[in-house]
Design a protein around this nucleic acid. Sequence first.
DNA 1: TTGAAAGCGCTAACAT
DNA 2: ATGTTAGCGCTTTCAA
Lengths: 342, 342
Amino acid sequence: MSRGVHRITMRDVAKEAGVALSTVSHFLNGTAPVSPKTQQKIIAAIERLHYRPDFTARNLKRRRTNALGLFVPDITNPFYAELARGVTDVARESGYSVILYATSYESELEEDFMELVEQHQVDGIVVSYSFLNEGLWRRLEESGIPAVLVDVYPVNDKWPSVVVDNERGIEKALSYLVSLGHTDIGYLSEPLYVLSLVKRQQAFLRFVRRKGLPLRDEWVLVEKAQKNRVEIGFTLGRRLLEAPRLPTAVVASSDLVALGALKAFLSEGVRVPEDMSIVGFDDVLLASYVHPSLTTVRQPKYEMGRTGVEYLLQFLQGRKEYPLLTLIEPILVVRDSCRERG
Amino acid sequence: MSRGVHRITMRDVAKEAGVALSTVSHFLNGTAPVSPKTQQKIIAAIERLHYRPDFTARNLKRRRTNALGLFVPDITNPFYAELARGVTDVARESGYSVILYATSYESELEEDFMELVEQHQVDGIVVSYSFLNEGLWRRLEESGIPAVLVDVYPVNDKWPSVVVDNERGIEKALSYLVSLGHTDIGYLSEPLYVLSLVKRQQAFLRFVRRKGLPLRDEWVLVEKAQKNRVEIGFTLGRRLLEAPRLPTAVVASSDLVALGALKAFLSEGVRVPEDMSIVGFDDVLLASYVHPSLTTVRQPKYEMGRTGVEYLLQFLQGRKEYPLLTLIEPILVVRDSCRERG
DNA sequence: TTGAAAGCGCTAACAT
DNA sequence: ATGTTAGCGCTTTCAA
């Protein structure tokens, strides 16, 4: 397998074309004018030899890698997958590769990732996950590698952050439920491993207090273990049903949690939305394809990924025409999982 | 951002430690014995200077990139996301990065991807997608970059291929339905853009003929457009319901298609499994969390990804202890979406 | 418009 | 056990 096989280099092309090595380089990069005649010779030589520039060598010289890192906890979570799509699309359009780094919520793996960064394997990085190991933020900062945060609130004053207004999202969900006559509302959440999730829960509690709605401990369930999101929703949904008195509606910390809870309710004979209304968060694709389809708070995941990389590229080009905090207005998408209180 | 800032190199460390450049290198790589005393000096210097080896330089010298490419059509499809998890996990364990390349089923993007490969930006590649542009297989072959195929049948005699026995899977699904008394069975499929999907459909038709089951054109629906899989299932499900006579069961080409069809049925008042049985393919996580939970043919996606990379790494290490074709036995997972014919 | 030459930071002979 | 040195393939002054 091409080990040891002579690789075609620019030197070969230069020789074949009968010009200097640097002329080939200049032509390829457009860094100096090259006469049409010479151009032809070079092109012909490249064709004949099937020459392809070697990026590693180019990168060593240019002191960059042409790669961006994408740091997410779980690529099988459609929220992060959509985000990844936005990230890879913009990166590709700009000639960058994207190195995918998913931790599965394991903090030991974060260290490995930081190695990647510190060894200059990426020019910049999109962080969509709060490090569990706090010290890593400092290491990242000290590495000097440009970073952007997506779905992560600012941690310093140099890395731009793109987040949805999580509090507003929860308020919209709750206002909607209240407008349907609901007063007894529960909240089901995955682990609060990210500030966004903390804010959602806080916004829920604040709203409930402000409106003077009844609140019981058994109605606010937060999972501790880093299990699969849908499984978490299923477990919490079941647990909720054990409460001595049930709420008439629940808000979930994410769509996956909502889908799990929906399953728990339906399989226990609790009808949705007749007996229980549900609102999710994120608006993953499947939200509109479950039955009943899920009312949810939409986050523009793909766009958030795109925006993040756009900021990062601006940074790499020395332009800084972006705000430190980009707060996106979430949209309530009304579907079939909620109904007026009976 | 650290542009122009002096980067700490091995030379700096050597000077700081008062030893030769190569001694530092040898120590770091374990390529020659280094006395404890010298080791201490080097370690101290590294600490003091916050030195990190530069991978680009190392890679140029070693003529490798330490990165693997992962080529999939759609990372938001949980099948590919699970696969990606397997791929990135094994790669990480072996010190490789994974460059994610998703095409969104657009064949123009395949070209970009091939550039990546030809410019030696990856040491090897996992292909989980049949190129729409046939010529690319040849280009990949000519590039000399080691490749493995996952969920793609062999295209030559050098790249190992890891696939589930798609025919067996469909046969298991159909046998199960027949055992429940079903004779009128439909088939809903996403575009046949991959041989696996062709085989599934063929297996379906073959089985139906062999068993002498009734078959109507309106029962075998294959989408042409590259839309979202769930949407495809929803559309085909609706279309199926327009047939003058309905089958009592359907097999879907994948779980996402099955979920879409399930939604179509339920929202048209067709009960599942009472009026219609459904079997999916893949066993994505959500299959067990929809209501009713989906009976499906399981593909070990994560393991397939892992196996693929393991083969690739063997190849890169000059060992070739793997078969050209690894055919995995699919498992029928019985849940709640099928019932005996009423 | 073209060419010669000096590295980018590292590995790996080879010499000591 | 340690040091010297020649590149890896490319970009980029600087000269011609």
